[in-house]
Design a protein around this nucleic acid. Structure first.
Lengths: 208, 208
DNA sequence: TCAAGCACTTGACAAATGACAAGAAATTAT
DNA sequence: ATAATTTCTTGTCATTTGTCAAGTGCTTGA
């Protein structure tokens, strides 16, 4: 808390470059500019090329990632060694394996970039410091959980109640940009079907 | 913060009766007895008969519920007016529509008791007070989110990668008590299949 | 105790989706 | 630019699951 505050060595972009990151906070929750800057002060940025592993299976996630630009997915390998995409992340959003990060457990999923990506990251130590010291950050964190839980819940409902064609149409309506940036085979497994089935569905409906 | 603290009128059980509720906190997280008692002091208890609606569709959830005894489910009505069970809750656990409770939005799902149930409830006001004043409660809350998110994520993975028969076998292995307490038609829609299909699967496998 | 309703099973057939293989189209590397 | 690789499409056929309808048996309430 002294007058001299050492900036983390990894800060390679100036504060102004945190525009997208900081705006993400403002977009979710009424929060003061200074509070956000305080929260994101210790975030470090890095970039990754497409098809690169951000977090491997069985690793313990030590970072929370903010995806500033690009597309990321998480996937598992089933017993036949086929990749099943469990989630697709489109910037701007946080990418976080909650169980691994907060409970220090090995991840079940592999997190990989789909396109070239830029990220900001922060450590559990920083998250904890902010969580316990900044009431607005606590609210923001919980809101992130609520939103993510709710999205996942919607997906479970869809998987249990809609057929593949409807799920495809919904995704197309809600996130058509994914179809311009993510290979269809990845989208297919995200929808819970094979790429052949997706191809047939697209043929019947008339594609994009 | 005065010396006189008014006990909530709805406290109908003595503190000792909060054993199951309080133990739930201890089972998830190392936390002091006094801290838990402080947190649950404002919880009120009530009971409901089987097949009773706890939280109706489009309502705004003003309470967080702790299910002390019994089984609860959440379900939606699809476009054909069929009930799709989205979640089955087995005591002891918290039952909470996160989106509705924390963002004050109308629920998409209906929450209904499957068996006779007993609950503890608390208000958003109390949750907020504890969340911002008791660090251990913040950690507990976040842990609840992490656990719930992770369970839901496992279910999405299962729905996308396993066929109905495997999903049935997994549920039987992990929560066989559900089959003794929840009608098969509810379990079927929870597994994302019809009751006819579940019946056939059970016939092939050899039932319980 | 009896009737009514509900849960569960089963059969016949239909629809949706998967498995596999081959080929076309697009992308990437050299 | 060309070759290699990957992605996407399509055909055939098998499997899974759904739909509908009928029938059995269990609960529940008057």
């Amino acid at each position: 808390m002294g007058v001299l505050r050492r900036l983390p060595l990894c800060v390679t972009k100036k504060n102004m470059d945190k525009l997208i990151l900081n705006n993400y906070f403002h977009s979710l929750f009424p929060i003061q500019k200074e509070t956000v800057e305080n929260i994101t002060e210790t975030f470090c940025d890095f970039a990754m090329e497409k098809n690169t592993t951000l977090l491997d299976k069985n690793a313990i996630s030590t970072k929370t990632y903010f995806l500033e630009k690009g597309y990321v997915r998480s996937y598992i390998l089933n017993e036949d060694n086929e990749e099943i995409t469990t989630n697709i992340y489109a910037a701007p959003c946080f990418v976080n394996d909650f169980l691994s990060f907060f409970k220090k457990q090995p991840t079940k999923e592999i997190y990989q970039t789909i396109t070239d990506c830029s990220f900001w990251e922060t450590s559990l130590e920083n998250v904890q410091k902010n969580f316990h010291n900044i009431p607005e950050f606590r609210e923001f964190s919980r809101l992130l959980f609520v939103i993510n839980y709710s999205k996942l819940n919607d997906r479970v409902i869809e998987m249990a109640s809609e057929k593949a064609e409807t799920r495809y149409i919904n995704l197309l309506k809600q996130q058509s940009h994914i179809f311009q940036n993510v290979p269809l085979k990845i989208i297919a497994s995200y929808l819970g079907i094979t790429d052949s089935s997706l191809s047939r569905i697209r043929k019947e409906i008339g594609k994009i």
